[in-house]
Structures are given as C-alpha cells and as structure tokens.
Amino acid sequence: MINEIICIVMVLSGLLFFVGGAIGIIRFPDFYTRMHAAGKGDTMSVFLILMGMAIYQLNDFSLANLLVAGKIFFITIFIMWAGPTSTHALIKAGIDEGQKVWTRKDEKGDPEA
C-alpha cells in the first residue's frame, strides 16, 4: 500500500515536470532557450516516473521483480548520463549551424526566429 502511494506521488510529479518541458518548448523564444526546456525538463521527470515504476514493481518481492527493477534503474542511470551529452551535441550543432542568440535588447527582432 505504501509502495503504491509513493509510486503515485512520484509519477504525478514527473508528469508535472513533463508538462513544464512541453510548455517551455512551445513558449521559449529561440533555439537555445528551448534547449534548456528540452534538456532539463526530461531528465528529472524520467527519473521520477521510472523510479516510481521500479518501487511499484518491488511491491511483491521476488528475484524476477528485483531484476526488472534493476533494469529500470540502469535505464534511469543511462538517461541521466545521456541527457546532458546529447544536449551538448545538439547545442554545439546549433552554434555551428549559425543559429542567432535571441536577446532581450532588440525588440524589433522576430521572437520566433
């Protein structure tokens, strides 16, 4: 029972962070700020949701369930290590491609560009 409550709380807070990332990627003005929403909004929410699943999986304890929880834990570790790396790679590609850095000062500039 306590496992289910922990699982529900973790999954719901993970969904909240997913909402933040999804709204951020629509509203933010340029490629780099969108990259902030994409790179960070995903890491914590994936961690929370997958950890909630792993805790729910350990509800009836057995060796098979322990192995599944271990695999979910490995996926989480991989996501937390791969998220910043792909963020670096993509934002470096944006710099090399010559994306403009949107600044507050030029009010005339199209915020979508």
Binding site: G24, H36, K40
Partner: peptide, 11 residues
C-alpha cells in the same frame, strides 16, 4: 531545482 526553475519560467 533546475526543473522547478524551468516550470516557473514556462508558467
């Protein structure tokens, strides 16, 4: 903290 920051900015 950084996710809460993004959430605050998005809303």
């Amino acid at each position: 903290l950084s996710n809460i920051h993004i959430l605050k900015l998005a809303f």
